[in-house]
Amino acid sequence: MNNDNFELKLQAYVDGELSAREAAAVRERLSNDTAGQSLVAELRNTNAALTGSETELKLPESREFFWSKVQREIERQERAVAAAPKINWIEWVRHHLVSVGGAALLTCLLAVMLLHGGGTGPLGEMEMASDEMGTYTYRDQQAKMTMVWFYDKSDDSEFTEPAAIASMDPE
């Protein structure tokens, strides 16, 4: 066996490609061949260095495969839209009744407020019998009362003479 063949044999030996008999023959020869031992060591080092550092080669996506993916995605979305019309009753009630009920409640509230008026509604109407008299109107929302206070515009008004109303005699 010439030297080149032996190196190829060593390469196959390191890669575990030899049969048991050939491997035994190589090991026997290596025991007396320091150059061969060095080569085997170097080959094993090289193998160890390459193991785990080889980058995985990714094949580029073919044009047909790319467009088939797009088509599949479109079909998937169409199926989802077709399945949507299934009625969700809770959602339906929430969507319809809440909005209609809210509008109805608001309308009723407004109607009651308009129809009842009252203390919180429009203010009262006051008409004085004489221009010589004025009023202050005091409206207290918290105490719930409306007070109309009469006062004299002129001191000599016959209408605002204190005794005109202020007789505290029940009879």
Binding site: G119, G124, M126, M145, T146
Partner: peptide, 17 residues
Amino acid sequence: LSTHKEAVQKDWPLILA
């Protein structure tokens, strides 16, 4: 002396004074 028109309520007195 005066004429006053206003809604009357149970807990909301109208006071002329």
